[in-house]
Computed example of a mutant assay.
Amino acid sequence: MAIDPQEYRDRLSKTRARMREADLDALLVVDPANLNYLTGYNAWSFYTPQAMFVDHDSTPVLFMRAMDADGAHRTAAPGTCTVVGYPESLVQQHDRHPFDWIAQQLRDA
């Protein structure tokens, strides 16, 4: 890993401080560059929906296609997030979308 994992934890702390300043309870990060900035996750999986949910108290959750989740476990800095892969059956479907599944996971949590 090119960057010390503590740097990612510091970035998350700064992000949460900015969230408090803006009176935000939660943040949904979807831009690949921002996912990389906060976790170190680095892969060519931006072609499918991916998102990271950040609140003030919980470990952030990084959602992505199940087949990309293993790569996230390997490239995200330890302790920066929990990685959850959504089912492959949601990819490129006309009647359902991965973000619907992600939203339901967040509601259930």
Score class of each variant (00 low, 15 high):
Ala2Glu: 13
Ile3Glu: 15
Asp4Cys: 11
Pro5Asn: 07
Gln6Pro: 00
Gln6Leu: 12
Glu7Val: 15
Glu7Ala: 15
Glu7Ile: 13
Tyr8Val: 04
Arg9Ala: 15
Arg9Lys: 13
Asp10Tyr: 07
Arg11Trp: 03
Arg11Lys: 13
Arg11Glu: 07
Leu12Asp: 03
Leu12Val: 00
Ser13Glu: 14
Arg16Ser: 07
Ala17Gln: 14
Ala17Cys: 01
Arg18Asp: 13
Arg18Trp: 06
Met19Phe: 09
Ala22Val: 00
Asp23Arg: 15
Asp23Leu: 10
Asp23Glu: 14
Leu27His: 00
Leu28Ser: 08
Leu28Ile: 15
Leu28Gly: 04
Val29Gly: 00
Val29Tyr: 02
Val30Asn: 08
Val30Phe: 01
Asp31Trp: 00
Asp31Arg: 14
Pro32Cys: 05
Pro32Val: 03
Pro32Gln: 06
Pro32Leu: 05
Ala33Arg: 13
Ala33Leu: 10
Ala33Tyr: 08
Ala33Met: 10
Asn34Gln: 14
Asn34Thr: 05
Leu35Met: 04
Leu35Ile: 14
Asn36Asp: 10
Tyr37Leu: 14
Tyr37Ser: 06
Tyr37Asn: 05
Tyr37Asp: 06
Leu38Met: 05
Thr39Lys: 04
Tyr41Cys: 06
Asn42Ile: 02
Trp44Ile: 07
Trp44Cys: 06
Phe46Ile: 00
Phe46Val: 06
Thr48Gln: 13
Thr48Cys: 11
Thr48Ala: 14
Gln50Arg: 14
Gln50Phe: 02
Ala51Ser: 12
Met52Tyr: 02
Met52Phe: 04
Phe53Met: 11
Phe53Val: 09
Val54Cys: 02
Val54Ala: 02
Asp55Ile: 07
Asp55Asn: 15
Asp55His: 05
Asp55Trp: 05
His56Glu: 14
His56Cys: 08
His56Ser: 11
Asp57Ala: 12
Asp57Trp: 08
Ser58Gly: 10
Val61Met: 04
Leu62Gln: 00
Phe63Tyr: 15
Phe63Ser: 04
Met64Pro: 01
Met64Tyr: 01
Arg65Gly: 01
Ala66Val: 06
Ala66Phe: 00
Ala66Asp: 15
Met67Trp: 08
Ala69Asn: 09
Ala69Leu: 08
Asp70Gln: 12
Ala72His: 00
His73Gln: 10
His73Trp: 11
Arg74Cys: 04
Arg74Ser: 11
Arg74Glu: 14
Thr75His: 09
Thr75Asp: 09
Thr75Ala: 07
Ala77Asp: 02
Gly79Phe: 05
Gly79Arg: 01
Gly79Val: 06
Thr80Tyr: 02
Thr80Trp: 05
Thr80His: 03
Cys81His: 00
Cys81Pro: 02
Cys81Gly: 03
Thr82Val: 12
Thr82Arg: 13
Val83Cys: 05
Val84Ile: 15
Val84Thr: 09
Gly85Ser: 09
Glu88Lys: 08
Glu88Val: 09
Ser89Ala: 15
Leu90Lys: 06
Leu90Thr: 03
Gln92Cys: 08
Gln93Glu: 13
His94Asp: 12
Asp95Phe: 12
Arg96Cys: 13
His97Ala: 10
Phe99Met: 15
Phe99Lys: 04
Phe99Ala: 13
Asp100Arg: 12
Asp100Thr: 13
Asp100Met: 11
Ile102Val: 15
Ile102His: 04
Ile102Pro: 00
Ala103Phe: 08
Ala103Met: 09
Ala103Gly: 10
Gln104Trp: 08
Gln105Asp: 07
Leu106Phe: 01
Leu106Gln: 05
Leu106Lys: 00
Arg107Ala: 14
Arg107Met: 10
Asp108Leu: 07
Asp108Lys: 11
Asp108Ile: 02
Ala109Tyr: 04
